[in-house]
Design a protein around this nucleic acid. Sequence first.
DNA 1: CCTCTAGGTTGACAGATATCGAATCAGCGT
DNA 2: ACGCTGATTCGATATCTGTCAACCTAGAGG
Lengths: 127, 127
Amino acid sequence: MSKQAALPVIDLNADTPCCPPLAVSRIPAETAAVLAPAFKALGDPVRLQLMSMIASADGGEACVCDLTPAFELSGPTISHHLKTLREAGLIDGERRGTWVYYRARPGIMRQLAALLAFDEAAAVQPV
Amino acid sequence: MSKQAALPVIDLNADTPCCPPLAVSRIPAETAAVLAPAFKALGDPVRLQLMSMIASADGGEACVCDLTPAFELSGPTISHHLKTLREAGLIDGERRGTWVYYRARPGIMRQLAALLAFDEAAAVQPV
DNA sequence: CCTCTAGGTTGACAGATATCGAATCAGCGT
DNA sequence: ACGCTGATTCGATATCTGTCAACCTAGAGG
């Protein structure tokens, strides 16, 4: 990474309550355009596993050197998937010496989860 | 791969507690292969809006005749997106007379939301 | 029967994506 | 300096995806 001039990294960092659940009020087109790439990034089995390995890793971060051998895929391919997750705003990478560590961004994950909330309370929307 | 072996409709109906959150334990490859298509289906702005329009519709269902004119897209394109959502197990369609109505499947939505849960309790996993 | 309308299916096409090998970059050791 | 290792970027390619025009199907109503 090193330089991120016009990276499409999503700004939804953490505190933004952002959006009511999908099932409560219709998502505006702009919101959909911003959040869809995050779901898209999770829409690949490899990336979903990568995301889980990173988010559930001890210490909250995972080294690429531990992620790559977990799949029967080449290094460049894993790197590509990590880049996709990064550009979707789901993870954040940091180089420490020889190795690169990734950690999940809790804010956007909570937003996606909130968007998918589907309880009885959500069904009875507050007018 | 992805030559759609058997029925595309996902079996995760409602009651399956299924999986702990992404950030709690590493997702098995099989689970990722099953759930990734659902995220993938939500990874398009049009489908995300369609999903929201359907899930938040009055009575819990929406007519295609109301969905199509909400976008500047052709009928076949909307139909294609609805098929994608249906095959991902996110919605269910029913024809009543001339019109076709779609409604959201709460089970899989709750599963996806649970998978993305990311609270402090999840971060501090029980050893 | 026939016609009309609402949706879905098919075929085709441009653009995106997943994957790899080769090349490149970034640190750490000698 | 040099080489070694981990990670990313580049180039190429096969496949997938979003979109539309054209066509087909299901009901409703003559």
